[in-house]
């Protein structure tokens, strides 16, 4: 049996160096991975500001040599050329960012509002009310989270097109309806909020009962204020969800009606075929400028509400 205890300075030094090396490699690994994460962002932002000549040239430039701020205005005005017949046409159509942002905010607002209301009520029922079949029902709801999304997309498409005229409607409001209704409730957020509600001690409820408070009042005056953090997180995540939504809107909105597009769909429609453009016609920088336009609001939200988002995500993992 060998013991390296009670030792001399040489071994001690060796030990200390060993720890130092371990630390060094840890930092190195973390830094390399951080660079890996950051590079796409930086590439996106800086390349969006490069003039076309730099993009197509062979050399790598990190920061743009010339700052082509006009790339961003080109996003809005488009690029016009003259076709062989002397007629002007758009070789790059303007992307309706203002509509995209507006629509997304409106849809997001209503979806989130609806979600918050239904989720609060449902979470309250599952956490504080007694009724037969409560746990069974909840388990069934949880199980639906395992179902792949296209199951819902297909049937909801069918349902809405058969019973309403909202699918691919030219009417802006009807389009909103189609975008909003299927998403006014969410099992995931109900689960999340129920967790938070459960953590409010039962004694508060009993004390309120003794004072003659009705359940509903208890919900409004006690549970909701105490769960503010979670509700805020839900609101933020829901808004971000709408911002990033793509699949359902792409089926429900007719892309001809460009004023109806949401953020992701607008991007997709506007940049069709962009990566195939070559030479002086290359719009790669515009492609990245468009991505930046869409990403920057998200980054702003992220940095402002970092705490809530981080907490919400890590909380959802703890129970898991």
């Amino acid at each position: 049996m060998e013991r390296e205890l009670y030792l001399n300075p040489k071994e001690l030094k060796r030990y200390k160096i060993g720890t130092g090396i371990g630390r060094f490699f840890t930092y190195l690994y973390v830094i390399i991975m951080a660079v890996f994460i950051v590079v796409p962002f930086l590439w996106m932002i800086f390349s969006s500001l490069k003039p076309t000549e730099e993009i197509i040239s062979r050399e790598i430039t990190f920061l743009p040599r010339t700052w082509a701020w006009s790339n961003y205005s080109k996003l809005f005005t488009g690029i016009q050329s003259i076709d062989p017949y002397g007629q002007p046409y758009y070789s790059f159509k303007p992307i309706p960012f203002h509509w995209m942002f507006f629509n997304t905010i409106v849809v997001g607002f209503f979806t989130t509002a609806g979600t918050v209301v239904t989720t609060i009520l449902a979470a309250f029922a599952f956490s504080r009310l007694n009724f037969k079949g409560r746990e069974t029902l909840f388990t069934i709801l949880l199980a639906t989270m395992m179902i792949p999304g296209e199951v819902f997309v297909i049937t909801n498409y069918m349902t809405l097109s058969r019973y309403t005229g909202w699918i691919k409607s030219a009417n802006h409001l009807e389009n909103y309806a189609a975008l909003i209704f299927p998403f006014i409730t969410s099992v995931f957020y109900t689960f999340f909020l129920r967790q938070t509600f459960k953590q409010i001690p039962n004694e508060l409820y009993l004390a309120a009962k003794v004072d003659g408070t009705s359940d509903f009042k208890y919900l409004m005056k006690v549970m909701i204020p105490l769960s503010q953090a979670t509700i805020t997180t839900i609101i933020i995540l829901s808004m971000i969800g709408t911002w990033n939504a793509y699949i359902w809107p792409s089926f429900v909105t007719n892309s001809i009606y460009t004023e109806q597009l949401l953020v992701s769909n607008g991007l997709m429609a506007g940049l069709r075929g962009a990566s195939e453009t070559t030479g002086p016609n290359s719009v790669l920088n515009l492609q990245l400028a468009a991505s930046t336009m869409v990403t920057v609001p998200l980054l702003i939200i992220f940095f402002s509400f970092k705490k809530y988002i981080l907490r919400g995500v890590s909380r959802s993992g703890i129970k898991g």
Partner: peptide, 13 residues
Amino acid sequence: DEDVTDIPPEKRG
């Protein structure tokens, strides 16, 4: 007799 002040815990015995 041994000064263990700078020695890490796992080496102190």
